[in-house]
């Protein structure tokens, strides 16, 4: 049945528009406003166009934070997406009690406050009091996330995998549950092996949920702030300072309004662009994707 055309529906949508305008448009316009003006005090301001943008783009610290950010997001996606699909596939074949219990366990990390995720891993990975830290040190591997760059990165990745793989797994589980058994029977009759079944039966059906999973993980990993803030504080040195961390120091720490605003606009546009590129390339891939 077709949706009816009726512009009075705007009345029902109006509250949402008002709320989101208050929480999104007004602040965003303020940011844009700051990014093109040099503000000295309430009455003295100078329109300077794109100077702050140029400044930000030339800043080597911005480029470094950006590179680290892209590397982190790429690694996170490369680990969590396959792992999440793997867990979901293993679970979906056993629709018993243990699967339900496991679904509950999977959702727990998603509901832990992000700073507590940092705290948990801080306690867990410290070489002196942490189970993980003590175990790794006992194996004779030099490990200290507070002073060693490699340790810090490995710990951050392990933490993110702990925190977010569940999201991919739950989405994939929902997607896989919706596949009719007839497809599997057909695949078995055709003599398809496990990989072929996955490639030609499961993957096409998972396309929609996986698109969402990748999009969510992509944008959230690009925005990561709280967990590294608690765990490593961006260090050792600047080795785990990602874009949000850098921006927050600039805006709240140093109160550099103009450059911070220009940074913000570029940051937001970058996330939009990456998500759009991914989305259109998936959609253009057709049914094969």
């Amino acid at each position: 049945m077709q949706r009816r055309a009726d512009n009075r529906a705007w009345f029902a949508v109006a509250p949402v528009v008002v709320v989101v305008a208050f929480t999104a448009i007004v602040p965003l316009m303020t940011v844009v406003n700051y990014s093109v003006q040099d503000i000295f005090d309430v009455d003295t301001r100078l329109f300077i166009g794109f100077d702050f943008y140029r400044e930000t783009l030339r800043d080597p610290r911005f480029a470094q934070a950006l590179l680290r950010q892209l590397a982190f997001s790429a690694l996170v996606l490369a680990i969590e997406i396959p792992l999440g699909i793997w867990i979901a596939r293993a679970l979906v074949r056993n629709q018993g009690k243990s699967a339900t219990g496991f679904l509950i366990l999977l959702s727990v990390p998603l509901l832990v406050p992000w700073n507590v995720v940092g705290t948990i891993w801080q306690i867990y990975a410290r070489p002196d009091i942490g189970l993980l830290g003590a175990a790794v040190t006992a194996l004779g591997i030099p490990y200290n996330y507070a002073s060693n760059v490699l340790s810090a990165w490995v710990t951050l990745l392990a933490m993110d995998v702990w925190h977010w793989t569940s999201l991919v797994a739950l989405l994939s589980f929902a997607g896989l549950s919706a596949i009719s058994p007839a497809y599997y029977q057909a695949a078995t009759l055709d003599g398809a092996n496990a990989w072929q079944t996955f490639r030609h039966v499961e993957l096409p059906h998972l396309k929609a949920v996986l698109t969402i999973a990748v999009l969510l993980r992509l944008m959230d990993s690009l925005m990561i702030y709280t967990e590294p803030f608690v765990l490593t504080g961006g260090g050792p040195g600047n080795s785990t300072t990602f874009l949000s961390q850098y921006l927050t120091t600039m805006a709240v720490g140093q109160f550099d309004l103009g450059p911070a605003a220009a940074f913000s606009v570029l940051y937001f546009l970058m996330i939009l662009l990456l998500c759009w590129l991914f989305y259109t390339s998936v959609m253009r891939g057709g049914d094969d994707g």
Partner: peptide
């Protein structure tokens, strides 16, 4: 509405504070 989901919270800190 969905694009708001892509906005990094860090971007909104200062304007939120002032608003």
């Amino acid at each position: 509405l969905l694009t708001n989901r892509m906005a990094p919270p860090a971007v909104f800190l200062l304007p939120f504070f002032q608003l």
